[in-house]
Simulated assay, not measured.
Amino acid sequence: MADKTKMSITVAAPPDRVMDVIADYDAYPEWVAAAKSVEVLSTGPRGRAKQVRFVLDAGMVKDTYVLEFDWAADGRSVTWELLSGEIQKAQSGSYSLEPTPDGSTVVTYELTVDLNIPMIGLFKRKAEKAITDTALKELKKRVEG
């Protein structure tokens, strides 16, 4: 897989509030524009989602895929890997949360996607950056809103 796309944003809320929004997959269709449906398929030992099916419709890009999540014990990060997808052959990503002295949280999102269809590297990286930027902005709006 190629290098990860990595971006950060500051959210005016403590890390536990941010992680609660990230972990509430049932609510994603309410605030993630491209998420048409999201279904938790299994949960892990602490009640967080382990496997989740996403139906995504981002205009020209439509996909149904399943991700498997690994939640850090400290509640400050989550990582995921693609289990299956229609147009994706691989996806890995993470959210990492870092509290700030003023009570806000710096959220760092990393994402790498590999598609089953050929795509020029420059366009792939541009798409990853757009996805990452949108995800962070939508998360900030949801948490702060």
Rank of each mutant, 00 (worst) to 15 (best):
S37G: 04
T108I: 00
D26R: 10
F54D: 04
K141P: 10
G145Y: 11
T134M: 14
A2I: 11
V18H: 02
K4L: 09
G44W: 05
V32H: 07
G145F: 14
E110P: 00
A12I: 01
D74C: 13
K129D: 14
K137G: 10
D26P: 02
T79E: 11
E68M: 10
I131Q: 14
K129R: 15
E144V: 13
A73N: 15
G85D: 13
P99W: 03
L139I: 12
E128S: 13
M19Y: 04
V113T: 08
A135S: 15
I22T: 03
K89L: 11
E98R: 14
Q51N: 09
A27Y: 04
S42N: 05
S8K: 05
T43Q: 09
I22D: 00
L67Y: 10
K36W: 01
R46V: 10
V40W: 03
M119Q: 00
R46T: 12
L67T: 12
R53G: 02
Q91K: 14
I22L: 05
E128N: 13
S94L: 08
K6T: 10
D133G: 15
L111H: 01
A130Y: 11
A2H: 13
I22Y: 00
Q88C: 14
A27P: 03
I117D: 04
P14Q: 10
Q91N: 14
E86H: 12
G93Q: 08
E81A: 14
V18W: 01
E81L: 15
A34R: 06
D133L: 11
V107I: 01
L83H: 08
I87E: 11
V61W: 06
W31K: 05
A127R: 12
T105G: 01
A23V: 01
Q88K: 15
E138M: 14
E138P: 10
D26W: 02
K62R: 11
A23D: 04
A58R: 06
V113Y: 01
D20V: 03
G121M: 00
T105Q: 00
R125A: 10
A58S: 07
W71I: 13
A127V: 11
T112Q: 09
D74Q: 13
L115E: 01
T100S: 07
K6S: 09
G93C: 08
F69P: 08
D70W: 11
E138G: 09
G47I: 05
Q91W: 09
T108R: 00
T134S: 15
L139Y: 13
A13L: 05
S96R: 14
E86I: 14
R17Y: 00
D3F: 12
P29R: 06
S77P: 09
A2D: 12
D3R: 13
D24K: 06
S92V: 15
N116L: 07
V21W: 01
A27N: 08
V38H: 01
M60I: 06
S84V: 10
A135E: 12
G44L: 05
R48D: 09
